[in-house]
Nucleic acid binder design. Structure first.
Length: 304
DNA sequence: CGCGCAACCTGTCTGC
DNA sequence: TGCAGACAGGTTGCGC
């Protein structure tokens, strides 16, 4: 569920209320949450520590602690974080209320704050993870998994060209690979490709300079739109206040199979790419040829 | 190294 | 109503 816009929305809500606060108590209710480390290790490393900063890298939330270590949380598919006010105010999406059946069935971790508030992590599908890491280990962890931050100045047309060069896999898979652009998931990959006018099955390396720019811009615009709307709530997603986002009301193609393309009116099609549902407009998003056009002759404008 | 796909889990919805 | 099967925002590991 949560991709960059959703995670960033949560981060922005947590930051002002969490910075300067101390984790009075930390309870890991499901050992899966702390895997591969132990629940006890996470509890003891985080409890008693104050939060210096709340950051984000790709889809990871990073709570920087006062001892130099960081608590890192990834929501994966269905994880959610809910911040409860000191007075115990239960917001509409309160994980304990939202969960069907047993009120605490999906609650996986509880971080009690020194002002009486609570940060709750819930996750019905149990894919979400939390761990503690020192600065060097954390840098190595992210460096080995994540590429450029798409909303940073580093995400240039040149960067897009470099990371896609020579790739034979489909553009959709390329966007989902976090080592290229960090933070794009299934929703925003479809939206970005539509905005760029690119076919999800076109090979990454088939893009020409104008396509590099179009895709870079498409990714930025799709993510920024999602951020402006507080994320997309298809099913489970709620922000840290328990509210839904509204990006789902403005999907251009994602989950709109059979509906009219907002640009040309053609019916939107659903295919499966890399095991993931993929939606696009067959009229607006034409496939590119296998390889980029070569210079016609040896004597052409050379590479100086 | 790049790529495709199964696996990890649980819940919900659809079709028979 | 019951039940099998498909599908769901992500990432990792394995085989080729």
């Amino acid at each position: 569920m949560p991709e960059l816009p959703e995670v960033e929305t949560i981060r922005r809500q947590l930051e002002p209320d969490l910075c300067g606060r101390r984790f009075e108590a930390v309870e890991v209710l499901d050992p899966y949450f702390a895997k591969p480390a132990s629940a006890g290790a996470l509890e003891s490393a985080a409890s008693g520590r104050s939060v210096i900063d709340v950051g984000r890298r790709g889809k990871y939330l990073v709570f920087e602690l006062d001892d130099g270590n960081s608590l890192v949380i990834h929501l994966r598919m269905t994880g959610s974080i809910t911040l409860l006010a000191p007075d115990g105010t239960a917001s509409p999406g309160d994980a304990r209320i939202h969960a069907p059946g047993d009120p605490e069935k999906h609650l996986k971790a509880r971080f009690t704050l020194d002002d009486g508030g609570e940060m709750l992590f819930a996750d019905p599908r149990r894919f979400g993870r939390g761990f503690i890491a020192g600065p060097e280990a954390l840098e190595a962890y992210f460096d080995s998994r994540l590429g450029v931050e798409p909303l940073s100045p580093d995400f240039t047309v040149e960067a897009m060209a470099a990371m896609s060069a020579g790739r034979t896999g489909p553009l959709k898979s390329f966007l989902l690979n976090q080592k290229g652009v960090a933070g794009v998931g299934n929703i925003y990959a479809d939206e970005a490709l539509f905005r760029a006018g690119l076919h999800p099955l076109s090979p990454g390396g088939s893009m020409k300079p104008e396509h590099h720019r179009a895709l870079r811009d498409g990714v930025v615009e799709a993510l920024q739109r999602g951020l402006d709307l507080g994320g997309a709530s298809i099913d489970d997603y709620r922000d840290a206040r328990g509210d839904t986002g509204s990006m789902q009301n403005e999907f251009l193609v994602h989950r709109r199979e059979g509906e009219a393309c907002p640009r040309c009116g053609e019916k939107i099609v659903r295919i499966v790419v890399g095991g993931r549902s993929t939606y696009f407009c067959p009229a607006c998003q034409k496939r590119l040829r296998r390889r980029p056009r070569r210079l016609a002759r040896q004597g052409g404008p050379g590479r100086s």
